Simulated scan of single mutants.
Amino acid sequence: MRTQKDRMVNQKLYIADDTELRQARKRAKMLIRKFNETDEEHEKDRLQLIKKLFQDTGENCYIEPPFRADYGFNISVGENFYANYDCIFIDVAPIKIGNHVLFGPRVGLYTAGHPIDPVIRNQGFEYGKSISIGDNVWIGGNVVINPGVTIGSNVVIGSGSIVTHNIPSDVVAVGNPCHVLRKINADDQKD
Rank of each mutant, 00 (worst) to 15 (best):
Q123I: 11
F89H: 02
P118N: 03
I167S: 00
V171E: 06
D91Q: 05
E126L: 13
G58E: 07
N36F: 04
V9W: 12
S161R: 08
A24V: 05
V163C: 06
L109Q: 07
H42F: 04
I151Y: 01
A186E: 15
Y14A: 04
G58A: 05
I32H: 01
Q48L: 10
R182L: 11
V155L: 12
G124Y: 07
E20S: 10
D170K: 12
G128S: 04
P168N: 02
Y110S: 01
Y62M: 14
I184V: 15
S153N: 13
V149M: 11
G72T: 03
P66H: 03
Y62L: 13
A69S: 15
V143G: 01
E79K: 14
H42E: 15
T19Y: 13
E43W: 10
R25F: 06
K183C: 07
D39V: 12
E79L: 10
I184P: 05
C87Q: 06
N36A: 02
D135H: 15
Q11H: 07
K5H: 07
Q23K: 15
I184T: 04
V107H: 01
G134F: 01
D45Q: 15
K26E: 14
G108M: 15
F73T: 02
V137W: 09
M30H: 12
W138A: 04
V180C: 10
P177L: 13
N80T: 00
D86R: 13
A186M: 10
N74E: 11
K26I: 08
G141C: 03
S159N: 10
T57F: 04
L53A: 00
L109D: 03
D86V: 00
E59L: 14
H165R: 15
I88L: 14
I116N: 01
Y85V: 09
R27L: 14
D86A: 05
V101S: 02
V172Q: 09
N166W: 08
F35E: 08
E41W: 08
Q48H: 09
D56G: 00
I162N: 06
C61H: 08
V174F: 09
N122C: 10
G98T: 06
D39L: 13
L53F: 00
V149N: 02
D86I: 03
N166Y: 03
V156P: 06
V143W: 08
D188Q: 12
I88K: 13
T3H: 04
V92S: 02
A112S: 13
E126S: 09
F35G: 00
